[in-house]
C-alpha cells in the first residue's frame, strides 16, 4: 500500500483530502513533520487561501521545504499539488504582492482575467477539462488515464489565480472560462491540479487512484 504524506501547513481542508486518498486505498499520514514527509512514498501538498499566506505557512515549518525538495526533486518521489499547493511549484506568485514560490516548475501565478466581464471571479464550480497533448508525455500521462470515459470530464474549481508555466510542454489540461484556465500542469514526477480532485466525485477519485499507482 502506498504511503502518502499530506502536508499540513495550516491551510486547507485536510480532512477532505485525506478521506479521498483513503477511499482510493492509500495509507495516509497528515503531517507537519519533515521526517514523516520524508518517510512517505508519495507527497501531496494541498492548499486553499492566498499564495503568499500559504508560502509563509510552509516556510514556518522548520525543515519542511528542504525535506520536500530532497524527496521530490532529488529522490524523484511522486508529488501532487492541489490548488494553491499546485501554484506553489511556480517561480513566483502575484497574489498579495510578488512572492517567491518553490521554483520547481518555471512560471508565474497570476490573476485570471476572463474576457467576458460578466463572468464571476472567483471561478467557482464545475468546469470541463480539456487535455493538452504534451510533447513531454507523448504516450499520454499515466495520471490522466481513463478520466474521460463516456462523458466529458468535469472537475470542481474554486480560485481567482492560476499557474502560467513558461514552457508549454508543462501544460497538461485546461478549462475554458472567458479564455484558458490552467487546470493541470506537470513535469517528470510532479503534477498539479488547479481544481480539487478530492471534491470532484468520480473524476477526482479516478485521478487520485491513478496518482497512487503512478510510477514516474
Amino acid at each position: 500500500m502506498s504511503r502518502v504524506a499530506i502536508i499540513d501547513y495550516g491551510s486547507g481542508n485536510l480532512r477532505s483530502a485525506a478521506k479521498a486518498f483513503e477511499r482510493c486505498g492509500a495509507n495516509v499520514v497528515v503531517t507537519a513533520d519533515p521526517g514523516e514527509a520524508s518517510a512517505a512514498d508519495r507527497i501531496v501538498l494541498p492548499g486553499v487561501g492566498a499564495f503568499a499566506d500559504c508560502r509563509d505557512g510552509l516556510a514556518a515549518l522548520p525543515g519542511m521545504v528542504e525535506a520536500l525538495t530532497r524527496s521530490v526533486i532529488e529522490d524523484g518521489k511522486p508529488f501532487l499539488g492541489i490548488c494553491v499547493g499546485m501554484q506553489l511549484m511556480a517561480t513566483f506568485g502575484l497574489e498579495h504582492g510578488r512572492t517567491q514560490g518553490l521554483g520547481w516548475i518555471d512560471g508565474e501565478v497570476r490573476a485570471i482575467a476572463p474576457s467576458d466581464t460578466a463572468l464571476k471571479v472567483p471561478h467557482m464550480g464545475w468546469n470541463e477539462l480539456s487535455f493538452v497533448d504534451s510533447p513531454a508525455f507523448a504516450n499520454g500521462h499515466d495520471v490522466l488515464q481513463d478520466l474521460n470515459k463516456s462523458v466529458a470530464p468535469h472537475a470542481y474549481f474554486v480560485h481567482s489565480f492560476h499557474f502560467q508555466p513558461d514552457d508549454g510542454a508543462h501544460l497538461l489540461a485546461k478549462a475554458d472560462y472567458g479564455g484558458d484556465i490552467v487546470a493541470i500542469i506537470g513535469r517528470d514526477n510532479l503534477i498539479g491540479t488547479q481544481f480539487h480532485p478530492e471534491k470532484s466525485q468520480a473524476v477526482g477519485l479516478k485521478f487520485i487512484e491513478n496518482f497512487l499507482a503512478w510510477r514516474p
Partner: peptide
C-alpha cells in the same frame, strides 16, 4: 458533517 465527508466527495 464528519460522517458525510467520509463518503461524499463533493463540495
Amino acid at each position: 458533517v464528519n460522517r458525510t465527508a467520509e463518503e461524499c466527495f463533493m463540495p
